[in-house]
Write a protein that binds this DNA or RNA. Structure first.
Length: 787
DNA sequence: GAGTTTGAAACT
DNA sequence: CAGTTTCAAACTC
């Protein structure tokens, strides 16, 4: 089917940024009970993951590293290794290259973007029975639509590979996932050619029809699931989901343009491949949970992305409407009866952010009852995705700047301590709209993050600077995941708006990077995420992505004023420090022994954790925005002033220019609506402000006049004409002018005019003086100034 | 700029 | 949760 129209192709990403090859080593495969088999999707494995990120469309190609022949084998054989997450910049093309050997990790390698351009709607999108179970998560842009399209193999695609990236065999097929939105970047899933695949067992899809699919993540109800593959596995059946629990996943024809926001990709890799023989399980089931139960707009849908030869591989794609919601996908890759090893690649797309979740799960029989889940079948029966819904929150989010991919580290449902067991090495999530830099393992990247507040919005919006617009009083921040530290898991929901998660070396596994820091880093509009030493890279491969910070232009970030702190004893790691409290790194501050920087990301992460332990809302804005405007703004906790009368900046309410409310515990409060003291202060403040404005305006005007005078006289000068007016401004003339101005000032004072009026009178007099000088320029050589 | 005041944050 | 201490900003001189 030709779903892609030329117009749509135009929307495809044309921006491909150069990125270094990224090789992601698989995280140590950890078996999480929660993620275990299909049969027990939801109960056992609460998979908390929440990533709210506005993703920028990216191009991702999934391909096996192995040569064509090898690839085929790889496709047929299940991959038991954990896949690692690779963060890439927005322009980066990611290659998911499943290794042949089951033990070999699945690597994500960035490739050049050039390969993405060609999308042939007519080409058949058959996954070839290959299920990708990589743990790597890819964030997508907040675009509303995602187009899964098989891309005709173009020579350019192969050539575009960056060094170290897996070579795409000519026969390989590409799926182009294009998020239709502002950015227009696309993700290309490149899969080995189905034909190369040895006879996959049952269920082999047949040739396939050109299946070009447009996935709309907007939660539009009118959209219908599209079955691409001819064969639909029983597993592909749409599981019955409660409306509330399900997140909207829409696959629509390209013609439909969804307004959905960021897209989340969830890539789940099989939890444990151990004991799995190539012949064991028949079908792979990807199960995931959607943590958030809110905003179920669309019923679960089954989507067949393509005909698949193998019956075991499944791909789940589920769009999420609200960014705040977390989608977990566990993939069980067992094909008992199939000699082939399969890799399942579930993709989850959310409205507001792209999120990729990788969860290990044990293979279980799909037939077992499952909790409400969203099932998406991609391709033949092999491709099925089930998203169990749960509210657990064990997922760690990581945002990758630039790429807008959300990396999420999955933690076992039971406790958050088992970070290391997460199926994915790193997860990526964005919380705020500003750009950020995320370094997952080897990858250095800057990724814009969407504030949590923004994520909550149902209506998807473009990622660019608009992301910030959505969030009020929020700043994007970066949270950089460091080495896994199970015991320390920041509560992402409580992080300051705009906070970004980035991989770091800290023992917490995360480094909170304030948006401001990103700005700091990206003075040139592009930032390299990971510090050289701070971010251990298992593979030793580092990729630097140059991306706009949090979607904000450099100028925007730079223009934001920030007050330097003067901390001495707190090391800027306590809320005493405004920088820290605002989730920002100290920069250009006057602090001493500052630990609020990347060099001390470990300490900083601990401090953040401590603050959150004391107060989960420590980093949330204290001044909440009222429902109907600023008048309703109020301090979340209220003040406790006793001596200032709440009329000095000691008072947080007064400082925020809001009146005290019932939540305040202040004594002798004068900061209320009818307070005469308050009115007086406000009046004085207004008057002072007016004066400043007037003075500024007067100076500006005078400067303008002088400049204009000089400009108008310049031609005469150059032309060799007579003396110009300014030539008459001799010492005597200047003195006379000053006398006039002084006299004017005296007169103003004499009549007791306000200062502002006096200033105006003086300026007017000065103007008259200038006019006299100009007027006398051509009359006499010695103009006289008379007041 | 030094010292004081103030109230939030941290601590007990 | 209340009382105390610590801290850095706000303020005064």
């Amino acid at each position: 089917m030709d779903v892609v129209s030329p117009e749509l192709n135009i929307l495809l990403p044309d921006e491909i940024m150069d990125t270094e090859a990224i090789v992601m080593d698989d995280d140590p495969p950890a078996e999480s009970p929660a993620a275990s088999g299909q049969s027990q999707p939801s109960d056992d494995a609460p998979i908390p993951m929440e990533t709210d990120v506005l993703a920028v469309p990216e191009i991702v190609s999934l391909c096996s590293d192995a040569p064509p022949t090898q690839r085929t084998q790889a496709l047929t054989t299940s991959i038991t290794t954990d896949s690692t997450l690779c963060s890439t910049t927005s322009a980066t093309q990611l290659l998911l290259t499943p290794s042949i050997a089951s033990s070999s990790p699945l690597t994500l390698r960035p490739a050049t973007a050039s390969t993405l351009t060609a999308t042939t709607p007519k080409t058949t999108t058959s996954l070839g029975g290959v299920s990708l179970t990589s743990g790597g998560l890819q964030k997508l842009s907040a675009n509303h639509q995602i187009i899964l399209n098989k891309v005709a193999s173009s020579p350019g695609a192969d050539t575009t590979r960056s060094p170290g990236t897996t070579t795409i065999t000519p026969g390989g097929q590409k799926f182009m996932v294009t998020a239709i939105g502002k950015s227009g970047q696309s993700i290309v899933l490149q899969l080995p050619h189905t034909g190369s695949k040895p006879g996959s067992g049952q269920g082999e899809a047949k040739a396939n029809p050109q299946h070009f699919k447009v996935l709309t993540i907007g939660g539009r109800t009118d959209m219908k699931p599209v079955m691409v593959g001819q064969a639909v596995s029983s597993a592909s059946q749409i599981s019955t989901l409660q409306a509330q629990q399900l997140k909207t996943v829409q696959i629509a024809k390209k013609t439909q343009v969804s307004s959905a926001g960021p897209i989340k990709f969830i890539i789940t890799k099989p939890v444990n491949n151990k004991g799995l023989t190539a012949q064991t399980s028949v079908s792979n089931v990807i199960t995931g949970r959607v943590l958030s139960t809110s905003s179920p707009v669309t019923p679960p849908r089954t989507i067949t992305l393509s005909e698949t030869l193998s019956s075991n591989s499944k791909i789940a794609i589920s769009p999420l409407k609200s960014p705040s919601k977390l989608t977990m996908v566990s993939v069980a890759s067992q094909v008992p009866n199939s000699p082939q090893k399969s890799v399942s690649l579930p993709l989850n797309m959310a409205h507001l952010g792209q999120q990729i979740l990788v969860q290990q799960s044990t293979a279980t029989s799909p037939a077992k009852p499952m909790k409400p889940v969203q099932t998406v079948t991609v391709g033949g029966p092999q491709f099925k995705t089930i998203f169990p819904l749960s509210t657990s929150s064990n997922v760690q989010q990581i945002q990758v700047p630039g790429s807008r991919f959300h990396y999420v580290r999955l933690v076992t449902a039971t406790t958050g301590s088992s970070t290391g067991q997460a199926g994915s090495h790193c997860t990526n999530s964005s919380m705020t709209a500003k750009p950020m830099v995320v370094n997952t393992a080897q990858v250095r990247m800057s990724v814009p993050i969407i504030p949590a507040q923004t994520m909550k919005q149902v209506v998807p919006k473009p990622l660019t600077s608009s992301g910030q617009v959505l969030t009020t009083q929020t700043q994007q921040r970066l949270i950089m995941p460091a080495t896994p530290l199970p015991q320390i898991q920041p509560n992402l929901t409580n992080l300051p708006p705009g906070t970004m998660l980035a991989p770091g070396s800290g023992n917490m596994g995360y480094t909170v990077l304030p948006a401001h820091y990103v700005t700091q880093l990206q003075q040139s509009a592009y930032v390299t995420l990971a510090s050289s030493s701070g971010f251990p890279t298992p593979t030793g491969i580092q990729t630097q992505a140059r991306l706009p910070l949090n979607g904000l232009s450099t100028s925007d970030a730079a223009s934001r004023p920030r007050k330097p702190c003067n901390c001495n004893k707190s090391q800027c790691l306590k809320l005493y420090c405004d920088c820290f409290a605002n989730g920002e790194f100290c920069q250009s501050c006057n602090c001493t022994n500052c630990f609020n920087n990347l060099e001390h990301e470990t300490e900083r992460a601990k401090a953040i954790k401590a603050c959150l332990d004391r107060n989960p809302e420590a980093f949330k804005p204290k001044i909440g925005k009222g429902k109907e405007g600023e008048s309703d703004r109020r301090h979340s906790k209220g003040c406790n002033c006793k001596r200032s009368g709440c009329l000095k900046n000691y008072c947080e309410c007064y400082e925020a220019k809001i009146m005290c409310s019932s939540t305040c515990k202040c004594v002798g409060c004068k900061n209320f609506e009818e307070s005469p003291e308050r009115k007086t202060l406000m009046h004085l403040a207004d008057a002072a402000e007016v004066r400043v404005q007037q003075q500024t305006a007067a100076k500006t005007k005078l400067s303008s006049q002088i400049s204009d005078l000089f400009t108008r006289t310049t031609p005469a000068i150059t032309s060799g004409g007579g003396r110009m007016p300014f030539t008459f401004v001799t010492k005597e003339v200047a003195e006379a002018t000053c006398e006039c101005l002084l006299e004017q000032a005296e007169q103003a004072e004499l009549i007791q005019q306000p200062q502002a009026t006096a200033e105006r009178m003086i300026l007017e007099e000065f103007g008259r003086c200038l006019m006299r000088i100009i007027g006398s320029a051509g009359k006499t050589d010695c103009p006289s100034i008379n007041c």
